[in-house]
Amino acid sequence: MTKSIRKYAMMLFICMAPIAAFALDSQDLPDIKEGIVTLETKDPEKLVGYTVGDVIEREVTLTIKAPYKLIDTSLPIPGYEKRYRGQLIGIELKSINHEKEESKKQTVHHIKLAYQVFTNNVVAKNAALGPEYLNLINTTDKKELVKYRVPSLTIAISPIAIFGQVKVENNMSPLLGPLLMKDDKEKQSLKISLAAIVLSLLGLLYILGKSAWLPRMGGAFAKAYRAVRKTDNTEAGLKQAISAIHLGFNTTAGMSVFNDNLSAFLHNHPDFYPIRPEIEQFFGLSRQIYFEPSFKPDSKFGIDSNPHQWLAKFTRHCRDCERGLIPEPMKAGA
């Protein structure tokens, strides 16, 4: 019984031995050879003017070549207060964020360290972030444990208030940059405002474009064309269609257009010149329908075979002219 207890105790000791080794003080381990670890740090721009409560962030990027690997348990622990010569230095690791990218040749560790200041003084004094000792293990030779020292960063702790009565203007340090406020909310408001402005501009463009999403859309003849297509091929429908087209001419000209001022209309709106014969034809049809039933308009464009269909095509040509296009010649027979 005693033998077996002793045997189990021995086995437990052997299993725990590597862990116990990691628990050893890192500073007692030998330094790693040069060239194995590459260090990059991103330190805060401001190195002075810290006071109690400030949080200082530091980013450390370690590139460790194989076969060495970082022992994650050697990373500093949040809440641990560092001491110097047995005295608390008043800098505490607040949080740590560790990410790593592993490959066959190397491992890259991204370590974000956030320290908080818990000390102050009546005069400025130096303080240091770190150093941090990290343990590494040679994966080919498990017995080889080494340490790597992340160098410390010296900062200056400033008093909360200047001792004595002094003029602030005379005591402003050129080394102390302005304290920046967090502008996340303002940036968000700016983005929302910009989005609102862009939407408003789009709306304004839509309104100024006479309710058209594209330039020259939604013009008088575009509306007339829709109105003509909705009319029936009856006498009443024909009257409605002619009336809608007259409205298109009047709206385009900004005045009433009649046969006797058609030349003036064409002079002011030369886009309609290509369809002048058709326009004259239209006014002839209008004359017949609205004023003089005995009048027979020229039938060279097939207006007499199907006036309603002819009107639809004529309005489409007017719409093309309105958009600055040259319509295809109207063919006989509409």
Binding site: N259, D260, F291, E292, S294
Partner: peptide, 12 residues
């Protein structure tokens, strides 16, 4: 030479 009055006639 028209058999009905048009707006053009009124304008004249």
């Amino acid at each position: 030479n028209r058999s009905a009055v048009l707006p053009d006639d009124i304008h004249a």
